[in-house]
Amino acid sequence: MIAALRYEWTRFWTVRSTYIMLGLALLLSAALSFLIVQATQSAGPDQGGPPPGTIDWFTSFSAPMTFAAVLASVLGAQAIGQEYRFGLIRLTLTEFPNRISIVVAKTVMVIMAGVLIALVSYLGSWIGLALHGHPTPPAGVTVPDSTFFGRGIVFVVLWALSSFALAGITRQTAIGIAVPIVSGLIVENVLIGFFSEKATWLVEHLPWSSASRWAGNSDFVQGPSGWSGLAVFAVWVALFFIVELVLFMRRDA
């Protein structure tokens, strides 16, 4: 198991895309955070905007999480999709014929990648705030606590795992990346538009919009509720993962 982890660790850190995704997480989060502060301060309370600082601080950290999730999903999908694309899966499984060990090692690395991307994204958000002159929260502003940051990390990790599982099922990196984006940002929104009143149960059980509902609403920012969205997404990810695992164990490499 340790050998498989070392193998995956080396695989992860010896391709350019890892560094590109981490760099993008930093830059995009910094830019988005900066722009959010800029926009909310421009609006101000006189124009119906929030009190100075309050929303800026939370949104600056939470809004980039969707970008972070997409970037983490690239690394998640690549963890298995690129192995099939370049035939490396045959080298990998020759060295690790006990396939379960490589699945576990890859899962650990995808989780680590998700955590890393989320942390780098938070760092980027802080840089954006600092560049705007708010390296520390203004007086009287509620500071995001560890639960807030933890939930963001879980959101990114689960998104990355969903991409990992989908890429494993289809043996395609592109599908692992595209399905969560297309489904979460387009298809599910259309379904919600059609069925929000007719079939509430359906809307409440869509995977990525449930995750976004959990991550994006005020509950995510300020309260402990919203866990049903997380639970729905986690069950979906677990289902994808089980299908991937079964196929991975049974298929030809």
Binding site: S17, F86, G87, L88, R90
Partner: peptide, 10 residues
């Protein structure tokens, strides 16, 4: 097993 089993940028 094959001369092309590698990641092109590694």
């Amino acid at each position: 097993l094959d001369a092309k089993f590698f990641h092109p940028s590694r």
